[in-house]
């Protein structure tokens, strides 16, 4: 019974994920105020993808992540493939450390994600530096980091209450060694 009900639900979530990907690209390029010096938009794509990968890694396919990352690189005039690479590696890191997020308070998750984002921004600048490109100014990077970190709880609230993307409760099934955690 559960097999039958889980499968369509998962495909529905994948579709929802793709929709969110397009929204994440669309939001920052909305012409809310066409001004050269306006405050940059937070990296909602990172926030949404990170929150999603932590909650439902099965319905956040890597191919979709890479596709949206490359597309947003192209549309937002960033060096092609750079942030896509960093985002991809970051999401895989989140996926690998998935177990660490089981039943921890949200504040800890938030701290972890902010730390990861800082590391990713650092990696981005490092890659730019070693490829002899001009690196991003520290002030811009810090402002971008703060805005994105501040937007993370909002994104999680939307995922949790509106899209119903929630972490699975701890299940009572035995793991592969036969223990019930």
């Amino acid at each position: 019974m559960s097999e039958i009900s889980v499968k369509p639900r998962r495909w529905f979530e994948v579709l929802l994920f793709a929709l969110m990907g397009f929204i994440c690209i669309g939001l920052p390029i909305l012409p809310m105020g066409l001004a050269a010096n306006s405050v940059g938009f937070p990296d909602v794509m990172f926030a949404v993808f990170a929150a999603w990968v932590i909650r439902r890694p099965m319905s956040a396919p890597i191919l979709a992540i890479v596709f949206f990352a490359v597309l947003s690189d192209a549309l937002m005039m960033r060096p092609l493939g750079l942030w896509a690479l960093v985002l991809f590696v970051g999401m895989e890191a989140l996926r690998l450390s998935n177990r660490a997020f089981k039943d921890i308070p949200f504040v800890l998750e938030w701290l972890y994600v902010s730390g990861l984002f800082a590391l990713m921004l650092f990696m981005q600048n490092l890659l730019l530096f070693v490829s002899f490109d001009s690196v991003y100014l520290l002030n811009d990077v810090i402002g971008h980091w703060m805005r994105t970190v501040a937007s993370y709880p909002v994104v999680v609230l939307i995922l949790h209450w509106i899209l119903r993307i929630r972490a699975f409760k701890k299940d009572n099934r035995p793991n592969r060694l036969g223990y019930v955690l």
């Binding site: 920052p28 390029i29 909305l30 012409p31 066409l34 001004a35 050269a36 010096n37 306006s38 405050v39 940059g40 938009f41 549309l75 937002m76 005039m77 960033r78 991003y136 100014l137 811009d140 990077v141 402002g143 971008h144």
Partner: peptide, 9 residues
């Protein structure tokens, strides 16, 4: 639209 990125104008 503008670039939407904080690093490029």
């Amino acid at each position: 639209t503008d670039s939407g990125s904080p690093f490029s104008q």
